[in-house]
Computed example of a mutant assay.
Amino acid sequence: MFYIGCHLSFSKGYRAMGEQAHSIGANTFQFFTRSPRGGKAKALDLKDVEELKKLVDEYQFDHLLAHAPYTMNACSNKDYTREYAEEVMKDDLYRMSFFKNSLYNFHPGSHVGQGVEAGIDMIAGMLNRVLSPEQETIVLLETMAGKGTEIGRSFDELKAIIDQVDVKEKIGVCWDTCHLYDAGYDLVNDLEGVIEEFDQKIGLDKLYAIHINDSKNPFNSHKDRHEKIGQGSLGLDAFVRIINHPKLKHLPFYLETPNEIEGYKEEIELLKANRT
């Protein structure tokens, strides 16, 4: 099964997202549980949750993915920011507990001058307070482009976090193709090498999802500006290889390209046409 979807707006609720995803040919999707800039989430509407669960069965969706707000920083130098990150993750994991095979993705954080090692310790500490063996949702560390003091710019940094997590069966990684390329992982000319390095350092069993985005920036630029598929520095051929690679093709892919809903529909059709 080729699981392909995009990022959808939660503004109209769970069922509306399911219907919209189906209308553009998606069989999975990603969404923010609250504003990407933070704040409180809307009160949970259990009736709306049940409506989406019905659509998940009807349309054979799988791997619904919630994305944490961008303001969530588990390794901030401010106590209240770290406390907010922990509260948000706890609340979001409760919300995702209603959906089978669900995923929860977050940017590891920025150490803001405290140092990578200190940041990694704080991120792992939060995960150890939040994760439990009983939860079903898998929490994913996203690969980052490496701008500023971001943590997660290398497989080594992600491994260092995972190594400290107690409930390792509930933690994984989400690749972002734009971020990886901008961070210096050559998905265009050395996809096999990138896959092999990840497998050696972290393990492919820990790779649960891929954000599939082209990049406006050149290789190893350490920036983060997504581009539409085939219109950036990676190019369409690289994505054809990624979605068809035998070690990656079983994963769910989520578009985060600069698009409106019709643009996502066109990209989904493009990727499906190139799936072998």
Rank of each mutant, 00 (worst) to 15 (best):
residue 2 F to C: 02
residue 7 H to S: 06
residue 9 S to A: 06
residue 9 S to P: 13
residue 11 S to E: 11
residue 12 K to N: 15
residue 13 G to L: 00
residue 17 M to R: 07
residue 18 G to E: 03
residue 19 E to S: 14
residue 19 E to P: 15
residue 22 H to W: 01
residue 24 I to E: 03
residue 27 N to G: 03
residue 28 T to C: 14
residue 31 F to R: 01
residue 37 R to A: 04
residue 41 A to C: 11
residue 42 K to W: 10
residue 45 D to H: 11
residue 53 K to D: 09
residue 54 K to S: 13
residue 55 L to C: 03
residue 57 D to I: 03
residue 58 E to K: 09
residue 59 Y to I: 00
residue 63 H to R: 06
residue 67 H to R: 00
residue 70 Y to G: 00
residue 74 A to H: 06
residue 77 N to M: 11
residue 82 R to P: 08
residue 83 E to Y: 12
residue 83 E to H: 13
residue 83 E to G: 07
residue 89 M to H: 04
residue 90 K to N: 10
residue 91 D to T: 11
residue 96 M to A: 02
residue 99 F to E: 05
residue 101 N to G: 12
residue 107 H to P: 11
residue 114 Q to R: 06
residue 114 Q to W: 01
residue 117 E to Y: 10
residue 118 A to G: 08
residue 118 A to L: 05
residue 126 M to S: 07
residue 137 T to R: 04
residue 140 L to K: 06
residue 145 A to F: 12
residue 151 I to T: 05
residue 159 K to L: 13
residue 161 I to M: 03
residue 164 Q to K: 15
residue 170 K to A: 08
residue 177 T to G: 04
residue 193 G to F: 14
residue 194 V to L: 03
residue 197 E to T: 14
residue 198 F to M: 06
residue 199 D to Y: 09
residue 212 I to D: 01
residue 220 N to V: 03
residue 221 S to N: 01
residue 222 H to T: 07
residue 230 G to L: 02
residue 260 E to C: 12
residue 262 E to C: 08
residue 262 E to W: 08
residue 265 K to F: 09
residue 270 L to D: 05
residue 276 T to G: 07
